[in-house]
C-alpha cells in the first residue's frame, strides 16, 4: 500500500492510520452515525427502523455493485436509472402472460442485454462510455414510456413481491439477496482471473491489451454485469413500491449509485476499488437520510448532508495519500 515516507519514525504510524482508514473508515463512520442518531432519536434505534433501513439499503446497494465494477474498469454508466425503469415495466408487464418467476428472469435477462448493448457501443464503435450511456439514458426512458403508454404497471404477483417485501426466517429477503450479491461480486472480483482483468483494464488499457487481455470482451461483460445488478435492483424496488412506473422509477438513480461507489472509495478513472466500501456507503446514505428525516431536518438539508459526507470521505482519502507521502493514487 503506497510508498513509505523516509522522513522519520512516525512514518509507521501514518502508514497504519492510512491502511486502517481504508479498511475501517467507512464502517467506523457508519457506527458513529448509528450512535449519534440513536441518542438523538429514540425511534431510530428500534429494531423495526434499523431493519427497515437495512432493507432499503438494497435499493442503491445492489445497483452499486455493477457500477463499482464499471468504474473500476475505467468507465461509467449513467443509463442505469432509465434502464431500471425500462426493465421493470417490461418484466412486470409480462407477469400475466408468463408468471412471476419468468417475469423476474426476463427482467434480469433484458437488463443484461441492455448492458450488452451499452458495452458493444462503447467497445466496438469506440464511443466514450459517458456519451453512449447518456444517449441510452434518454432512449431507455423513452422506450419505457412508449412501451407502457405512460401508464404504471401494477404488480400483484406473489413471487415478485416476495423479492422486495418477503421474509425468510424473519429476515427481509431483500437483505439476504443484497448480501448474496455482494459475496458473489467479491468472489468474482478478487478470486477469479476476470476480476484481475477488470482491474488491469481500468489501470492501464494499453498495458492490459499488450499482456493479452481481451479488453473489449472484459468491458462488454462489465456492462452486462451493470445490467444484471440493475435488473435485480429493479425487481426489489418495484416490489417495494407495488408498481412499476415508467416515469418515476429510477429518476436520479444513476447519481445515487455513483455516489455510493465513490463514497465507498472507488476512484473515478478506474484501477482499483472497494466493493465493501460501496456497501457501507449505501448503508450510510440510507441511514443518514432516515435519521435526519426523523429529526425533522428538511429534505434539502439531507442532500446537503450527503454531499458533505461524500466530500468528507474523499478528503479523507487525500489526507491518507498525504500521510503516505504520495501525491496521488
Amino acid at each position: 500500500m503506497g510508498r513509505l515516507n523516509s522522513r522519520g519514525e512516525r512514518t509507521g504510524m501514518k502508514e497504519k492510520f492510512a491502511s486502517r482508514w481504508d479498511s475501517y473508515g467507512l464502517p467506523l463512520l457508519f457506527i458513529v452515525l448509528l450512535i449519534v442518531f440513536s441518542i438523538l432519536a429514540p425511534a431510530f434505534r428500534t429494531s423495526f427502523n434499523l431493519i427497515s433501513n437495512f432493507r432499503f439499503t438494497s435499493f442503491i446497494g445492489i445497483g452499486a455493485i455493477g457500477m463499482a465494477f464499471c468504474i473500476m474498469n475505467g468507465d461509467f454508466d449513467i443509463s442505469v436509472g432509465s434502464m431500471l425503469s425500462l426493465v421493470a415495466v417490461l418484466g412486470s408487464s409480462l407477469i400475466p402472460v408468463l408468471g412471476g418467476v419468468a417475469g423476474v428472469l426476463i427482467t434480469l435477462l433484458a437488463a443484461s442485454f441492455l448492458g450488452f448493448v451499452n458495452g458493444v457501443f462503447v467497445t466496438k464503435l469506440r464511443i466514450p462510455a459517458f456519451i453512449t450511456t447518456l444517449g441510452m439514458m434518454f432512449i431507455y426512458r423513452a422506450l419505457a414510456f412508449i412501451y407502457t403508454n405512460n401508464t404504471p404497471v401494477y404488480i400483484s404477483d406473489k413471487f415478485w413481491l416476495f423479492i422486495g417485501n418477503g421474509k425468510v426466517l424473519g429476515i427481509p429477503f431483500a437483505i439476504i439477496l443484497m448480501l448474496l450479491c455482494y459475496v458473489g461480486a467479491f468472489v468474482l472480483l478478487r478470486k477469479t482471473p476476470f476480476g484481475r482483468y477488470v482491474i488491469a483494464v481500468g489501470t492501464n488499457r494499453e498495458a492490459a491489451l499488450l499482456s493479452g487481455i481481451n479488453v473489449d470482451r472484459t468491458k462488454i461483460i462489465v456492462f452486462m454485469l451493470v445490467g444484471l445488478f440493475i435488473g435485480i435492483a429493479s425487481v426489489v424496488i418495484s416490489a417495494n413500491l407495488g408498481s412499476a412506473n415508467p416515469g418515476m422509477l429510477g429518476q436520479g438513480y444513476e447519481f445515487q449509485v455513483i455516489t455510493a461507489v465513490v463514497l465507498g472509495g472507488t476512484v473515478l478513472g478506474g484501477g482499483d476499488g472497494n466493493l465493501w466500501g460501496a456497501f457501507f456507503a449505501a448503508m450510510i446514505i440510507t441511514f443518514l437520510k432516515n435519521g435526519l428525516g426523523m429529526k425533522q431536518v428538511g429534505s434539502y438539508w439531507q442532500l446537503v448532508a450527503i454531499g458533505l459526507v461524500l466530500i468528507f470521505a474523499v478528503a479523507m482519502n487525500r489526507i491518507k495519500y498525504m500521510l503516505l507521502g504520495t501525491k496521488e493514487v
Binding site: A43, T46, F48, N49, S52, N53, F56, F59, P152, Y154, L161, G164, N165, I237, A239, N240, L241, G242, S243, N245, M248, T286, K289, N290, G293, M294, S299
Partner: peptide, 30 residues
C-alpha cells in the same frame, strides 16, 4: 422510493395516523 421509506419510518415512529400526498399514487400499496 423516498416516499416509501418515509412512510415506513413514520410507522416505525409509531405515529397514530398517517396522511399522504403521494408523488406516485401507484406506489403506496405495500
Amino acid at each position: 422510493q423516498k416516499m416509501v421509506q418515509d412512510i415506513n419510518s413514520l410507522i416505525g415512529q409509531k405515529v397514530d395516523g398517517i396522511v399522504i400526498t403521494p408523488v406516485d399514487p401507484g406506489a403506496i400499496g405495500p
